[in-house]
Design a binder for these strands. Structure first.
Lengths: 290, 290
DNA sequence: CGGCTCTGTCAAGACTTTGTCTAACCTCTG
DNA sequence: CAGAGGTTAGACAAAGTCTTGACAGAGCCG
């Protein structure tokens, strides 16, 4: 993914770096990720927002007003064309998976990836389908085989998108499920959300013992280590991790609670993964200031 | 192949030798081979990369960013047969994985997929690397984190290839690891081997209880159900599966033994997965004759 | 008109990045 | 052996970026 520093970004959109910083400071227009040294790194989405902002201001809207408009504008992209809503596609996908119909499932996924933003695909199709499956499995109306088949298929698609998610200059996040936790698909999705905002991702996945986390953290010095679990126990069992200061630890997933996070000194991530990604960016910035 | 020393190289691409060395030292942009005396020798591929780098920097990208882009970019066009053996590539891949270097690992995989047959890639690169990793993990010289990182990366690549492996008109195989078995990467590879011979694959993956297998078999009526495990216990624990006649059951993986297979009435698959795929085809034909 | 806010720009001082350069030594060729 | 061209390690200065704080013009209100 393209990541630009402020000078290059300023040239591209035709305004001064000072103004970019002012808009960020005054209106929170952008929240670019930062390098280790604190340099801003802008994404393509950031560029789109700035262009939108410039357009509005040029057309006479006050900057304050324009910023508020841009902030609340959906991340552009084909919004609900084609008649088929993400929810309808999710229903199709669920049915295809229940029939073990790989071709139909892949076709549904192809359609949504081609039509909607990553945020919409993950938040309104993939995760709901997985949640639904989990629920139906819990109450006995879906088989383990169905759940396995669906997990493997979706995992393959998501890991395909994850290609190269460790490249670039952004802050690094190490993602893992603690020992005893086997559901890592949500974590893959969260990795993609972080990636879309410029982070570099090192994915360790399910069932990672604390000591391996410590080794990895020593080697890679990530800005944050994210632990995710579907239930509380695995998170409760995580010991302090040498080499990972609690300030650099974040808990997410259904199993994460305020109390568990507090006990470990970790950040508690928002259940919405795109909010959580933003949260980590803010946290990182305030840490840099300190 | 033409190999140039640093002065000649610098003239050709139009930058100073000092800068070439700085880019190498700071960003690892190149890793030219060295003469006995330590002189750098640059290849044509190196030249291509430097030109790409120069182009990016000229267009305003920061050198750091540009280097990261160039490093992770696949070598353009049909790369020279390169003389690199699968074994050499496997060694590269192992090292990249040990460093948690996703870009280098992907590059190595890109090279082998572009150069060798699926059979060679699986049999001489991917599986040996995984075996080696398993061994080093067993004797303590590899961490769990390394094993997780490598598994997830390779799984993503293999599942990418698995795209659409359920399509077509061939006989269907259901692939699963029995309850208690979590290592399913070998099984993914076997699925690819079967697929290359025209089978349709339904992949259930790790830790699948017998009763789910029964459900799936009832629904899909596969020509064969393959169970794979790295150790014997999970296979020994598999009960008779209603809906799957023993004649349609096959055992594979390190944990499969003649005795276990005999007890379950199952076929014992050859340790070499391509032989095993052939074996299933033969078995299917003879069954059809009967 | 005076006062007020909004907004783009600027400056100071510190830090980072990056291309170049130097020093001291090594290798190959004529 | 001289000399062109290599090597590493480190230093250096210019350019870029960071934060904080300030300033001046525009627009608005009383």
């Amino acid at each position: 993914m393209a990541q630009r520093r402020i000078g290059e970004m300023a040239r591209r959109v035709g305004i001064s770096p000072e103004l970019l910083r002012a808009w960020e400071r005054r209106y929170g227009l952008l929240e670019p990720v930062r390098t280790e040294a604190g340099y801003r790194l802008y994404s393509e989405e950031d560029e789109r927002r700035v262009r939108e902002m410039v357009r509005l201001v040029d057309s006479g809207v006050s900057p304050q007003q324009a910023a508020s408009t841009v902030r609340s504008s959906a991340p552009a992209g084909p919004t609900e064309p084609s008649g088929r809503s993400p929810e309808a596609e999710a229903a199709d996908l669920t049915q295809a998976l229940a029939r073990f119909d790989e071709a139909a499932a892949d076709a549904a996924l192809d359609r949504v990836f081609a039509t909607y933003s990553l945020e919409a695909v993950l938040g309104r199709v993939v995760l709901p389908v997985l949640d639904d499956l989990g629920e139906r499995w819990a109450n006995g109306s879906a088989t383990v085989a169905e759940e396995h088949f669906a997990s493997n298929l979706i995992r393959g698609r998501l890991l395909g998108l994850a290609r190269g998610w460790d490249a670039g200059a952004g802050p690094r996040a190490v993602l893992a499920c603690p020992a005893g936790e086997r559901h890592d698909l949500g974590l893959v999705a969260f990795g993609l959300a972080l990636r879309s905002q410029g982070w570099r991702i090192t994915f360790l996945g399910a069932d990672t013992p604390a000591e391996s986390l410590a080794d990895t953290a020593r080697l890679l010095r990530p800005a944050v280590v994210v632990l995710s679990a579907a239930t509380s126990q695995p998170l409760a069992d995580v010991p302090p991790i040498p080499g990972v200061p609690p300030a650099r630890l974040a808990f997410g997933g259904r199993g994460a609670t305020a109390e568990l996070a507090k006990r470990a000194g970790a950040e508690l991530l928002d259940p919405d993964m795109f909010s959580a990604a933003g949260q980590l960016a803010v946290e990182l910035r305030s840490r840099a200031r300190a």
